[in-house]
Amino acid sequence: MSPEKLLLSRQVEMVVIPAAEGELGVLPGHVPAIVSLRGGAVRVYEGGQVTESLFVPAGFAEVTPERVTVLADEASPLATLSRAKAEADLAAAEADYAAAATDTPEKREAAMDRLLSMRVKKELAEAA
Rank of each mutant, 00 (worst) to 15 (best):
A95Q: 13
T80S: 15
A128C: 09
S2K: 11
H30K: 07
L7A: 04
A61S: 12
A86P: 02
P32Q: 09
K122A: 03
A95N: 05
A91E: 02
D73V: 08
D103K: 14
A33T: 06
E13T: 10
S2E: 05
D113Y: 11
L54H: 14
A100C: 02
A72F: 07
P28V: 04
S9P: 04
V50Q: 03
A19H: 10
R67S: 14
A92G: 03
R119T: 02
A98P: 06
A95T: 09
G39Y: 03
T102H: 13
D96S: 11
V56D: 00
P18T: 03
S53A: 10
L6P: 04
P28H: 09
E74G: 02
T51L: 13
M14D: 13
D103P: 05
G22T: 04
E66C: 02
A95H: 07
A91K: 12
I34N: 12
E46P: 06
S117I: 01
A75W: 00
A88G: 04
P3H: 01
L27N: 08
V26C: 11
A20V: 12
G22L: 05
S76M: 13
A100T: 01
A92M: 06
L90I: 00
G39C: 01
V42C: 09
V15L: 09
A19Q: 08
P57D: 01
Y45A: 01
L6A: 14
V16M: 15
E62M: 06
A93V: 01
A75C: 01
G25A: 07
Y97I: 01
R83Y: 03
A33R: 15
A86D: 00
I34Y: 05
S9G: 09
L124V: 10
T51H: 12
L81G: 03
G29N: 10
A86H: 00
G22A: 03
S117E: 00
V68K: 11
S2G: 10
V50T: 11
L24G: 08
L124F: 04
E74N: 05
P57H: 12
V35G: 04
E109D: 13
G40C: 08
G48E: 00
M1S: 11
E66W: 05
T104K: 12
A92W: 00
E94F: 00
A75V: 00
T80Q: 13
V120L: 02
V12L: 13
D73E: 13
E126G: 04
Y45V: 09
D89V: 03
A79G: 12
L7K: 08
G39I: 00
V68Y: 09
E52C: 02
E23Y: 10
A84W: 05
G59A: 02
E66T: 14
V120R: 14
M112N: 12
V56C: 02
R83C: 09
R114H: 14
D113L: 14
L116E: 11
K121H: 07
S76Q: 15
Q11R: 15
D113F: 14
A110N: 11
V12F: 09
K107A: 15
A99M: 12
G59E: 00
E23T: 10
